[in-house]
Amino acid sequence: MWEPNIIKNEDIELLLTDVAERYGYDFTQYSKASLKRRLNRICLIDKFSSFAELRYRVMNHPEYLQRFVEEITVNVTEMFRDPNFYKSLREEVFPRLGTYPFIRIWVAGCSTGEEAYSIAILLKEANLYHKSLIYATDINPGVLERASSGIFPISQMQLYSENYRLSGGIEDFSKYYTANYDSVQFHHNLKEKMIFSTHNLVSDSSFNAFQLILCRNVLIYFDKELQNSVFDLFDISLDALGYLALGSKETIRFSKLEKQYKQIGDERIWKKIR
């Protein structure tokens, strides 16, 4: 369905400033091009015929806010997305993490949890899960609820098991879940060491020290300045010699972190060296 084109650039500024003042969600440093698409999409799906209608609903119906946040923060995700990335985690990063008595991992912008469950599976297979903790955070409480349920559409399992295999997995992927009619339930032992919590990368501060931080396909929605301030947040939250993992088209190159971090192989994984 082709989205309408009724939101103007000036409208975006206006709405975002209002939302930040009224609700404390600050999207003013998000990439404008993407936001504009999202706002036009909301107008299509929720049948607003003008910017004024959208603005009225957002500002006068606080119960609509969660839906608004959910629509403008894209939450598309996959298990074992970019299998080679997970392969590098298995081969290059986990053997190092294994030398720690206790492993803390932060999955920032975890969406509905597919990434966190993928990490849990890797940790199980590396026999490290018992001494790990995975903090899975997102700005959106709605996706976190789905994440903690561990229920995913069965239609995705073919893709996920293929991704899993390409990432170097040798088990039968279906051993990790129980299939129901149109969904699957991932086994509860996979989330024993997961902590789900809301955390806004724009406004919340560091809450722990980690050996590995994953933040994939979240920073593409931020402008450069905001990207840099989130990099600072990650830097403070990473132990010496910790690892930072980004999405496959994201980079710390051109940022302040560049000199203190060293890239591991071809994947978007950097080790803090200073």
Binding site: A33, S34, I220
Partner: peptide
């Protein structure tokens, strides 16, 4: 697997949405 958008005449963004 990504959509591509122009932020302005020189800067581009990627987008992983539907």
């Amino acid at each position: 697997n990504y959509h591509m958008l122009f932020e302005n005449k020189t800067l581009v963004s990627l987008d992983f949405s539907e």
